[in-house]
Design a protein around this nucleic acid. Structure first.
Lengths: 223, 223
DNA sequence: GTTTGTGAATTCCTTCACAGCT
DNA sequence: AGCTGTGAAGGAATTCACAAAC
């Protein structure tokens, strides 16, 4: 039984710590479900309750948390606020992160106006495009800069994350530029398997892949 | 080393066949990379060549394909066109699939105009919203219908896929309605872990989760 | 009584390595 | 010589099950 989580790629074999990356990818889910319990005025939750809302087993949640410490109390469960704060700290979500967007076409503009990033501490502070007709124009609150400005802007604005929303045939080139500029985390909307060095992470957003594997089950379904 | 693939959820333990779902989720990647080789006029490719472009091992590709048959020739590799066609057939991509969109806010409208679905055979043929101010309006080429029309439209238009683009707090309710109407595959853009029966698949699209696990590595990076 | 944290057991997935075909 | 297909081996991730804590 798989669970809601994004797919993260890196270059050839690279795990910065000994915590399995599949565990790291589940932590944001725990943060999110803890926020739900916090909103519903729970003070304590058990691994059973957390698991129930995520369709996972309680053991998996406990095992995952055990990589980082002991956050619960036997017989009582976890303090919702404290566990949420600990996980946010572990994930680096106790601060904000600057990102830049490359590609301000239709998809890029939708990403800029996506309201889900800001409340989680992710700020898009620069936008780039290769199309000279777009350069200098305003998108949201941002002025569109040429790709050549990536290195300077990344340095000046302390940008750590690149968001790639360019056509497939330009995506690898853009990713290379971002990596050259020192970016180590890329949110990639282009339908390619990006080639990156081992110390760079790529999270791929690709609705078509999801649809294409679901049709297998639709086709073979018995009602 | 993880690889580009979406996360697919179902209800409690359910694998329609004995092919691991992780394998099913990789097949669309193979289809895509085969299209690349086809575009570059390759007639044959080896598992080594395919693996290279996907940052996987050749053995994994061969093993994955072996669940479905013998598509290669020793000493020569795979015929690009034939393997692509076989995989498309296996995945059910040799036909088109109708989908409906629920939620025509900013995100929903971006999804409707997303150009990636159509060429892969996915057609959004109906749109629904709860907001009576939107009902009856035109979005793209579609008229927006009320949620109550879901069952009828799903039946009449042979809709097999639901795309959910409503706010988190309404998502579970919408998903329940889709499931009641007979939908068995859901592309979910809402940031929730949907609860569905075992025979329903959910592919989650959630850029924030991706960012939130990458920050772990950014925080702990050594340059 | 309840629930955690964790070694041990199990299941699942990937890689190896080579026989067999072209 | 080159590459597939696959059983066997190895590795990774999940689940079990229970002692310890509350």
């Amino acid at each position: 039984m798989a669970i809601l989580r994004p797919s993260i790629t890196t270059g050839p074999d690279h795990n910065i710590s000994d915590v399995p990356s599949v565990v790291i990818q589940r932590l944001p889910l725990y943060v999110r479900v803890l926020a739900y319990f916090e909103g519903n005025e729970y003070e304590m939750v058990s691994s059973e309750q957390l698991a129930g809302r995520l369709q996972m087993t309680p053991a998996q949640i406990r095992k995952d948390l055990s990589y980082f410490g002991k956050f619960g109390k036997q017989g009582r469960g976890y303090n919702v606020k404290r566990l949420a704060a600990e996980l946010r700290r572990i994930l680096g979500l106790d601060r904000s992160w600057n990102a830049c967007l490359v590609g301000v076409g239709r998809l890029g503009r939708a990403i800029i106006s996506y309201p889900g990033f800001q409340p989680e501490g992710f700020r898009v502070v620069a936008a780039f495009d290769a199309d000279s007709a777009l350069i200098g124009s305003e998108v949201g609150e941002l002025k569109v800069d040429p790709l050549g400005d990536i290195p300077v802007k990344v340095r000046r604005l302390n940008i750590r994350i690149g968001i790639v929303a360019v056509p497939a045939q330009h995506a690898q080139g853009v990713i290379d530029r971002l990596v050259d500029a020192g970016i180590r985390a890329i949110l990639n909307y282009a339908p390619i398997a990006a080639q990156v060095p081992p110390n760079v992470r790529v999270a791929n957003i690709d609705p078509v892949l999801g649809l294409q594997s679901m049709t297998y089950y639709l086709k073979n379904a018995r009602g």
